[in-house]
C-alpha cells in the first residue's frame, strides 16, 4: 500500500561528483518498498518547485528509505541542500519493481542506473543468489565511489574486477574460491569508463556483450538494466538477439507518479503507450516499441 507522508531528512551526504545519498525517515514506505520501485519526492518545503521528482528506492534500512541522486537541474540542486531535520513530502512506493527469480542474474548499470540496482543487489544477497554487476560511467571518479559504496552496503563481498572481464563470474565455484568464511562473495562487479580511466574503456554494453557470449550454461539467465534510454535500447537489442529475458528500469518526465496524468508514457510494443509510473518503471524490454523510442 502506498502512502504520502512528511519524511524527515536524516542525512544527505556527498558520495561522488554531484551525487548524494539521502536518508529519509519513512517507515510505511520503507516497509512496502520492493527493488525497482520508486518514490515521488518534493525537493523543498512549500509549493516551489511545483512538481515532485521521481527517484528510485536505492535501499531500505529499518524505517529509513535511501535515495541516491545526481544533481541534474533545479530540483535536484535544491534537494542537495536539504539538511538533516528538514521535512519533505514523499509518496510511494510506486510502480512495478524487478522480478528476482533468476539463477544467474546480470545487473547492468549506466551511471546513476546503479541507484535501483543497489537495492536489487541487497535483495539478491538475501536470497543467496550470486549476481554479476556491470557498471559503466564517464570517468573513474564518477563510478568507483558508487561501486565501493554499494559494496559496503552488502553483508558479503562485492568482488570488483577493474580489468579482468574475460574470466567472468559464476562459476559459483569461482565465488567459492574467492570467498573466505568471514567474507563470502555476494557479487562480482566489472566496470567500464568512457575515458578508460577505470576498468575497460568504452560503454557498459561492452561487458554485457562478453557475458552474453558465454556458453549457454554460464550465460546470465536474466539481465536487469538501468541507465539512459540509448543504453537500455542497446541492452534490449543484445538480449533479444541471445534470447535472454531483459528487464529495464525506465525514466520519463513525471507529474503525478500514480498513473493519473498520463504524462510519463513511452511507446508500447503492438501500438499505443505504456505509463512508466504504472506499467513500469521496470518493464520487460520486449513490451516496448524500441523502434519508436529515439535514442
Amino acid at each position: 500500500m502506498s502512502a504520502c507522508l512528511n519524511a524527515k531528512v536524516l542525512a544527505n551526504e556527498l558520495v561522488g561528483p554531484d551525487v548524494y545519498l539521502l536518508r529519509l525517515a519513512a517507515g510505511p514506505i520503507a516497509a512496502a518498498a520492493r527493488p525497482g520501485q520508486f518514490v515521488m519526492l518534493r525537493v523543498a518545503p512549500g509549493d516551489e518547485p511545483l512538481l515532485a521528482r521521481p527517484f528510485s528506492v536505492h535501499g531500505v534500512e529499518g524505517e529509513d528509505v535511501l535515495i541516491l541522486f545526481q544533481v541534474r537541474g533545479r530540483g535536484t540542486a535544491l534537494l542537495s541542500q536539504a539538511a538533516p531535520g528538514a521535512k519533505l513530502v514523499m509518496w510511494g512506493p510506486l510502480g512495478r519493481g524487478f522480478e528476482l527469480e533468476a539463477k544467474r542474474p546480470a545487473l547492468v548499470a549506466g551511471g546513476m542506473g546503479i541507484a535501483p540496482l543497489g537495492f536489487v543487489a541487497r535483495k539478491l544477497e538475501d536470497k543467496g543468489i550470486l549476481f554479476h554487476l556491470s557498471s559503466g560511467g564517464a570517468t573513474q571518479e564518477a563510478i568507483e565511489g558508487l561501486e565501493k559504496k554499494l559494496g559496503t552496503s552488502l553483508r558479503g563481498r562485492l568482488e570488483c574486477r577493474a580489468t579482468d572481464i574475460h574470466r567472468l563470474f559464476h562459476a559459483a565455484q569461482e565465488a567459492a574460491e574467492l570467498s573466505t568464511s568471514t567474507a563470502p562473495v555476494s557479487g562480482i562487479c566489472t566496470s567500464t569508463t568512457m575515458d578508460g580511466s577505470y576498468g575497460e574503456k568504452g560503454p557498459v554494453t561492452l561487458l554485457l556483450k562478453n557475458l552474453l557470449s558465454l556458453p549457454p550454461e554460464l550465460r546470465p539467465d536474466a539481465v536487469l538494466a538501468c541507465g539512459p534510454l540509448p543504453m537500455l535500447k542497446a541492452v534490449a537489442a543484445m538480449c533479444a538477439e541471445k534470447n535472454v529475458p531483459c528487464q529495464v528500469s525506465l525514466e520519463a518526465p513525471m507529474a503525478c507518479g500514480v498513473g493519473a496524468c498520463l504524462g510519463c508514457v513511452l511507446p508500447a510494443a503492438g501500438g499505443g503507450y505504456v505509463r512508466v509510473c504504472q506499467e513500469g518503471p521496470v518493464m520487460d524490454a520486449a513490451a516496448l516499441d524500441w523502434g519508436r523510442i529515439g535514442a
Binding site: M254, C264, G271
Partner: peptide, 23 residues
C-alpha cells in the same frame, strides 16, 4: 485514444505544460 507521442509534459515557472492529447 492513444494520445500524443512523448514527451507530453514539462514543468514551467509556477506551472506545467501538457499535451496528453486526450488519451
Amino acid at each position: 485514444r492513444p494520445g500524443n507521442p512523448p514527451p507530453r509534459i514539462v514543468e514551467t515557472a509556477g506551472g506545467m505544460l501538457n499535451a496528453i492529447g486526450l488519451a
